[in-house]
Design a protein around this nucleic acid. Sequence first.
DNA 1: ACTAGAAGACCCGCGGGCGTG
DNA 2: GCACGCCCGCGGGTCTTCTAG
Lengths: 343, 343
Amino acid sequence: MPATPEVPDGKRPTLAHVAARAGVSVALVSIVMRGAYGASAATRERVLKAAEEIGYRPDTRARVLRSNRSRLLGVQFGLRHPFHTDLVEGIYAAAEPAGYQVALSAVAPTRGERQAVEALLADRCEALVLLGPEAPAARLAHLATQVPVVSVARRLRPAPPAVDVVRTADDEGARQAVDHLVALGHRAIAHIDGGRAPGAADRRRGYRTAMHRHGLDEHIRVLPGGLTEDDGARAARTLLAEKPRPSAVLAFNDRCATGVLDTFLRAGVAVPGEISVVGFDDTSLSRLAHIDLTTVAQDVPRLAELAVGRAIARLDGEAVPDGEQVVAPRLVVRGTTAAPGTD
Amino acid sequence: MPATPEVPDGKRPTLAHVAARAGVSVALVSIVMRGAYGASAATRERVLKAAEEIGYRPDTRARVLRSNRSRLLGVQFGLRHPFHTDLVEGIYAAAEPAGYQVALSAVAPTRGERQAVEALLADRCEALVLLGPEAPAARLAHLATQVPVVSVARRLRPAPPAVDVVRTADDEGARQAVDHLVALGHRAIAHIDGGRAPGAADRRRGYRTAMHRHGLDEHIRVLPGGLTEDDGARAARTLLAEKPRPSAVLAFNDRCATGVLDTFLRAGVAVPGEISVVGFDDTSLSRLAHIDLTTVAQDVPRLAELAVGRAIARLDGEAVPDGEQVVAPRLVVRGTTAAPGTD
DNA sequence: ACTAGAAGACCCGCGGGCGTG
DNA sequence: GCACGCCCGCGGGTCTTCTAG
């Protein structure tokens, strides 16, 4: 029996198996598998053939162990947030061309942010990209002492040193929405907010400031909301019960806006005829033909690209200036907004 | 200068650093970190303190390399499918108590199933749990020669050897929906199908069979649909244009049903007054108060538990009988179904 | 004398077998 | 019998060395 059997039973083939089969050294197989310089074309072909035949597959875990780099980006996200899943798609698209792998760690009912991050770190991720993290700023700062940390869509005030923030100019987005509505002729514009959700404070502030600038202070109206459809529906029911109803509503996000829309439709309140509705995020939800929601788009590919780029820059030891990267939002006008009283 | 400096600059602390700091051997630290037997309480405390101080964190990749088991379950899922993300939550809940970690690999526009699976395998996952895989059965069979494979929600005919299938009795679910509608007095019940999506064929067949059993052959009507809201909306528009409209619609899934609902609402067609709508999956979408969709529930926790259980059983070398694990669906009656003509 | 191609030693961080006091 | 240390190997990358041309 040979020292290294060609077909290792139920076990995973290794470099040694390939080497034995191809009749070369292990080191040479390593060179070939990495596509590195130092093997002749003929050998290369023999080795690749042998690897193919026994179904060899490089073991990333062993590889990482040796080379001190893992080239792994850890991403924490919420399974239930469409905005997060959209971002994850963008992160894959940005990371892989840069030569980085992505490790996903979801936040779920049975799995908090702490666990999600611990898993990523134990897995040797070189940097952490956290989508809408709700952990205390101090915790993020502590993490950042161990590994580069990028907070996406969650502003941190005061900014802890070394924690990068990539976010949309939420206040500016709210302003664009208000400007649009005012230009259409609206005056009584209400805002259904996101409570303590990441970004909510800025959107609220942006709304208030914009209303003030238009001299509409007396129409400022912030209703408690949240980030789910139910939150939006609840706030919408409050509005329905009112005598002079606002003629337009800016919701915290698209999910919230969807809840508002649906509640109005069911109550026979025409949108945008009787009331205009604006969302936030431009998730796939709002783009659907039958929702057709006017919304403030976050530039997801750009956010993903910046987040990945920032993490990589830190890893490459570039002198990255502290400070946020703020991406401009863009209002997308669709079918849920119109001049008031357009019935 | 000591052989192993206590604070390894920017590097990750290892067992050796902890050992040096605590003044014990590396092996002993290993024992303590694993909570294994063989260390005195005093030593244990000293070691843990040292580890804490320098921020030591076990390296799963090295650990995996050493112990031939990785205790890692690879999960492939679609970021855009709420049903998948719900399942992922269930898989976390089922796997972690059983002592298995979960590795997520998403299918995205820039990342096909092939890439997703390759990443999982390179990462040394011991088994693969594929949610609604669309790869050819032959490919799945090939994978199964290397590692246990569980296909969730995708039936395989003929069943390849060694590929486990965990799925809902889709035909039975469609039957329950039809029975419910017939009991309410409906006769003209249409089905918006899912094309070639996993499960679509069975739901279509279940619908046809049920209609036939009720003597409603002449009312059988299958419209081409799909798994997104837009697909549902498109089919709904087709129905709107018809003269004698069906009085009820069974949609392929909840997303599709949502599209149908919205289109009807916008057209002023009352649901369930003029037309009843039934979805499939019971995703969080349908449970929302303002959608309140009657739907066929898939037992997500059970599916997740079976999928994980099956994978683990294979890994434990249990003699698992080939064959599918079929989970019963359960109709959840909510607000979108009623007797016909209840206006 | 110089180079491409190939081989061997050793290391990464950790866990287990076996030994020692 | 308990607490602990030494040594080796998991799979693969890197550095050094050796050989043939």
